[in-house]
């Protein structure tokens, strides 16, 4: 049988220069957006490496993405079971050593359950799953994943979740604000009741970032949102999320 790509596994030719950077994308049971995250890495010019939740092995990657989905069905709490996956030991160790780690949606939930990021996500305040094109403001452009954006700039990326309401105690929220660790904030509409409109945060070192919206769904013209915060685009032409992936690739290549 021929080795044909399943949908989403196709790799376009990566941009020269960044292809040396290898970014791991972890698949947990119930992960859904792993093919999308890998595609985003490739479209940004990097090399995507599939990582399996059951392996104690990061295969020497330069950064790690925990993609969206419903790992273990989100049945206990979102991310609560995945944080105990074997691969998470290496992710936690790596993160503490400065490895760039990005958690998107369910991946963000795993990072909070693993205590790499503070706070937690509860059910949306309106109690429904919501899928919409969401405007965000980049509050912090000094993290490993946001350096390509201007501070204060706005982007439009899809948001889709059931348990997306970010909560933390007032002290933690004040700390996050005081230390500039709020990375993304919802603009115009707070789609889930998140405290202080927080959409994404970082750790103190700036290498670990988690956010609820999905930058990996806004990286390819024709398959993204209908709009962009940077100007008019074609139908489903928004690619505002690509900057997150080029940010980390340039950082990795620059450091080498």
């Amino acid at each position: 049988m021929s080795e044909t790509p399943l949908i989403g596994d196709f790799s376009p030719a990566p941009d020269a220069g960044l292809s040396g950077a290898r970014i791991g994308v972890i698949t947990f049971p119930g992960t859904l957006d792993d093919a999308d995250a890998a595609r985003a890495v490739r479209l940004a010019g990097g090399t995507a490496v599939s990582l399996w939740h059951g392996d104690h092995d990061l295969q020497g990657v330069d950064a790690v993405i925990l993609p969206g989905g419903f790992s273990y069905g989100d049945y206990l709490r979102a991310g609560a079971i995945s944080r105990f996956a074997p691969v998470m030991e290496q992710v936690v160790d790596g993160a503490k050593g400065g490895l760039p780690v990005l958690g998107i949606c369910n991946g963000f939930q795993v990072l909070t359950e693993a205590h790499l990021l503070p706070g937690s996500m509860i059910k949306n305040n309106h109690l429904h799953f919501v899928c919409r094109d969401q405007k965000l403001r980049v509050e912090n452009n000094s993290t490993a994943w946001t350096a390509e954006y201007a501070a204060g700039s706005e982007i439009v990326v899809p948001l889709k979740n059931q348990d997306g309401q970010y909560v933390a105690d007032e002290k933690t929220l004040d700390e996050l604000e005081g230390e500039g660790r709020v990375v993304f904030r919802y603009v115009d509409v707070n789609p889930n009741g998140s405290r202080r409109d927080i959409a994404g945060i970082t750790n103190a070192a700036g290498n670990v970032v988690g956010l609820m919206p999905h930058p990996e769904h806004a990286v390819e013209a024709g398959y993204g949102p209908d709009s962009s915060a940077f100007g008019p685009v074609g139908v489903r032409g928004g690619t505002d999320g690509l900057g997150m992936f080029t940010s980390v690739l340039k950082k990795i290549v620059g450091a080498n």
């Binding site: 273990y72 069905g73 049945y75 206990l76 079971i81 105990f84």
Partner: peptide, 14 residues
């Protein structure tokens, strides 16, 4: 009970 089933599996693995 899918929830219970997933939790039971996690307990075994832990």
């Amino acid at each position: 009970d899918p929830q219970g089933k997933a939790i039971a599996g996690a307990l075994q693995r832990l």
